[in-house]
Design a protein around this nucleic acid. Structure first.
Length: 488
RNA sequence: GGCCCCUUGGUGUAAUUGGUUAACACGUCGCCCUUUCAAGGCGAAGAGCACGGGUUCAAAUCCCGUAGGGGUCACCA
């Protein structure tokens, strides 16, 4: 381990969005740093010019911040180990590449893409592992210099030579060994002068004092290259931890084709960041007491890399939805109010029409019935606008020939009520009316719900009436009597 | 194909690291509550721990093999 200070990093490539798997990687890094009083760093791995996406970095930063994963060093946070964009560190990589070349641990290569392609195809045809054939090493030093002077395009390759097995002590997987000869002479510097991931990653991790490399399992098989690089450069190895993959329901690597993979898609759909973090944390890790509903702070006290599961985890949207509902329901009314106001702003409704007190009542009446904030509007539109239609299935089941008469009587009795201070006043009157009419409460209740909400489901009957207010209730009842015709 | 990783109900995980009727959560189903829908409560079905061999008084836990799945083999990360 590097010194005693824990320093970890999340090092995404800015390809346009933050993948949910990336969110989990970032989260584990963040928590690990917090737990160990260490530093969490954001580094942008933008060494592929061809994949440059406008605004990708800003989006990444936005999303990471939305998730609440604060980093102490990064592109927009500064720090003593910057710059934190790899594209701004080209001279650093070049320096180490040259050092390796001078020590014969790396070399210049001038092969054309066509030759490499052909080589690869031949090896594949023979069912061999595709590997560079070290052809460049047959070129004399003088010739190399001549080519360089002539401005011929070149790459720099790692010179892997025979030796003992490469051993990785992975914090989640334990000891993993690779034969040295399966490691390819990886390109370190591309012909455009940019480093590849492998070089840039190792150099930066070392220079930035990274103590633990916590990343996805897809990196495990290229780790020997990295280990070799540390060895060649004479640097101390960081601790490695390779996290299990996130999977589609068919157990293949989580992909766009089978659902949403971008964190912002979940954010935009109304998922709470606490719920998403909670969910993603559970994909590969758990509390020893089996607690499943928690926030990041609670998780921090118990997190260890050793407890991370080894096998890939299927992303189960049902469980995410459940967690979202749980987190949403646990929020204070005031917080929910603010969220609901924002949702109203996005809708056809006008925030000016509702007082805070009114919305707070709406919130409480629907609290157990929504999993997302936007569901307040979808599941209880009758609180925000007029009733614009009536559920036919409910009409069919609950609206009979004698219903209008009953309802009118009820409206009449409601009208006679004085000031209503308790929602149960409605209950009293409804029951009295039923008795007066000699019918069951249900004959009044269901049509009443339908007429005041247009729906067959919703908040408690008396909450609904109380929140709407007597006037509106009676008005809606009479409108319903005019508009609803029984369905045979 | 080579190399590497993985394998407990449909899904995510547990099992004091060899000794429990294999536990919890999501989901599913049922009942209760409620003349709505949820939430909540109670309960059920669902794995015998990928498979096959060992070791052991005893194995989901240790060993060997097999199978299956996944990752990776780019001048992408």
């Amino acid at each position: 381990m590097k010194g005693s200070k824990v320093r970890v990093r999340f090092a995404p490539s800015p390809t346009g969005y933050l993948h949910v798997g990336g969110l989990r990687t970032a989260l584990y890094n963040y928590i690990f740093a917090k737990k160990n009083n260490g530093d969490f760093i954001l580094r942008i791995e933008d060494t592929d010019q061809s994949r440059y996406v406008e605004g990708a970095v800003e989006n990444l930063i936005d999303t990471i911040k939305w998730a609440g994963l604060e980093y102490s060093e990064g592109p927009d946070a500064g720090g003593d180990f910057g710059p934190y964009y790899q594209s701004q560190r080209l001279d650093i990589y070049k320096k180490y590449a040259e050092q390796l070349i001078s020590e014969k641990k790396a070399y210049y290569a001038f092969d054309t893409p066509e030759r490499l392609q052909q080589l690869r195809e031949e090896q594949m045809a023979k069912k061999l592992q595709p590997k560079y054939d070290k052809f460049a090493l047959t070129i004399s030093d003088e010739e190399v210099k001549a080519k360089l002077d002539a401005g011929e395009p070149y790459v720099v390759r790692l010179n892997v030579v025979p030796g003992p097995k490469v051993v990785i002590n992975d914090a989640v997987r334990g000891r993993v060994e690779f034969d040295r000869d399966v490691v390819d002479d990886q390109i370190l510097i591309k012909s455009d002068g940019f480093p590849t991931y492998h070089l840039a990653n190792v150099v930066d991790d070392h220079l930035m004092g990274i103590s633990h490399v916590i990343r996805g399992e897809e990196w495990l098989s290229s780790t020997p290259k990295h280990v070799l690089l540390y060895e060649y450069l004479g640097w101390e190895l960081p601790e490695f931890a390779h996290l299990p993959l996130l999977l589609n329901s068919d157990r293949s690597k989580l992909s766009k084709r089978q659902g949403d993979v971008a964190v912002e898609q979940y954010r935009d759909k109304g998922y709470l960041r606490d719920a998403l973090n909670n969910f993603v944390a559970l994909l590969g890790w758990s509390f020893s007491d089996k607690k499943e509903f928690f926030n990041v702070d609670e998780m921090t006290s118990e997190f260890t890399l050793e407890k991370v599961h080894k096998a890939g985890a299927v992303f189960d949207i049902d469980k995410l939805n459940w967690l979202n509902a749980e987190h949403l329901r646990s929020l204070d009314g005031a917080v929910l109010l603010e969220m609901l106001r924002k949702e109203i702003d996005k809708s056809e409704y006008d925030n000016g029409n509702y007082t805070n007190d009114y919305l707070l009542l709406v919130i409480e009446s629907m609290r157990e019935r929504v999993s997302f904030v936007h569901e307040y509007l979808e599941k209880a539109p009758f609180f925000f606008g007029e009733v614009t239609g009536y559920d036919e299935a409910v009409i069919k089941k609950r609206w009979k020939e004698d219903t209008p008469g009953y309802l009118l009587k009820l409206a009449e009795n409601f009208e006679k009520m004085g000031n209503i201070e308790d929602k149960h006043d409605y209950e009293t009157v409804l029951k009295q009316t039923a008795e007066e009419l000699g019918i069951g409460n249900g004959k009044l209740m269901h049509p009443l719900r339908l007429s005041t909400s247009g729906m067959g489901t919703g908040p408690g009957m008396y909450d609904l009436l109380f929140i709407l207010g007597k006037e509106k209730v009676i008005k809606r009842m009479r409108e319903a009597v005019e508009n609803i015709k029984p369905i045979a």
